[in-house]
Write a protein that binds this DNA or RNA. Sequence first.
DNA 1: ACCGTTCTAGAACAAATATTCTATAAGCAA
DNA 2: TTGCTTATAGAATATTTGTTCTAGAACGGT
Lengths: 207, 207
Amino acid sequence: MGRALFDHADFLAAARDLAVEHGPSAVTVASLTERLEAPTGSFYHRFASRDVLLGELWLKTILAYQEGFVAAIDAGDGLAAALHTPRWVRTNLDDACLLLLYSRHDFVQGEWPKALKQGVAEQARRVTRCFERFARDVLGGADAERLRLAQFVLADAPIAAVRPHLQRREPPPPIVDDLIRATYRALVAARRGGRRRLSARPGAARR
Amino acid sequence: MGRALFDHADFLAAARDLAVEHGPSAVTVASLTERLEAPTGSFYHRFASRDVLLGELWLKTILAYQEGFVAAIDAGDGLAAALHTPRWVRTNLDDACLLLLYSRHDFVQGEWPKALKQGVAEQARRVTRCFERFARDVLGGADAERLRLAQFVLADAPIAAVRPHLQRREPPPPIVDDLIRATYRALVAARRGGRRRLSARPGAARR
DNA sequence: ACCGTTCTAGAACAAATATTCTATAAGCAA
DNA sequence: TTGCTTATAGAATATTTGTTCTAGAACGGT
């Protein structure tokens, strides 16, 4: 074979860099090949289309992110799962910008390439299962409200705490962990075992 | 004058609808004029460029959103400011999708049109002042950590609680207010007057 | 040395896009 | 009416986009 000057991973890495610097829409086949000084033919030799590249990039990144998250839930440690976000973000700053600053649709709009569609669906199922498991085991039930609470303390709140720093491409400071920890403790304690209500705590007027 | 079949607001409304349905990048001059059945000339008669349209749309929307927020802070009511987000989202679902699902850079990438640049800067100053005021008056000081806490309880967390519902274009259910309220109470109480630490509460082992 | 596979190389192409331009029609004021 | 302003109307243009296509170079096995 003719010597391979660029491989699959080179294109993915260049795409990630471009996306982090100028947003996913700036990842054009032209900007990509220009950055690598590769011909467009080399790109299409490896990727069926631009959508396939961006889809693969997104999927690979979110799977890496979810790994530690799922592990923590499986180990029954909700707080560790919540704190996984700032931890992972610190060690994977660029990947984190890619993933948490943009949505799936910023990478591939419309229908996803067939080969990836399955991966996306499986990915969605994985998180759902995590939330269900946490709601059942820690919150005392998997009804809609407890599922929503699980999603908030495990994912939404940690991501929100981290996001402003990602926008400046800086690693989240320790205070971020404190925010996540305090949120987790307050909201999980309020529901633990399904006894106490989340709001309307005794003596606190509801507004 | 030749009768005006379309005006400024028509284009803004159509742009908003397109952005909500298919993302800001789907707001092209062609899709816009096609939806209104207007000629491109009519568009460029009112807007200097596509960037100006999208910039105006974003700015006008975020200013409307911030109005109630700023008012609540000025009234010294932090919890009301935190709860303003779900409230405003319910009464302005489309505007909320536009604003909270995308970032400023999804509307205008690169430099902003000169006329709008000033408005964007002023807008940024307004929120910063709100956070500072809240940190000073309620949290007992405007150091970096308290500012970060203010931003989290007043903006980041409420937006995070609301976002999953916006992605499905559904109004946020009451549980969302409970999440925001509980988060606010837990984090603000921990810092009120600057006495207690956010983490490492007495009797709680830090991890 | 020869062949076939793999990859580089980049020109060529079609579709989409923002913008400009010229022409025309509708109202208003004199 | 005659002019002036404002807005519609849409063809024309230049650029950028993703993708395809053809040609040839580099290597491995025989």
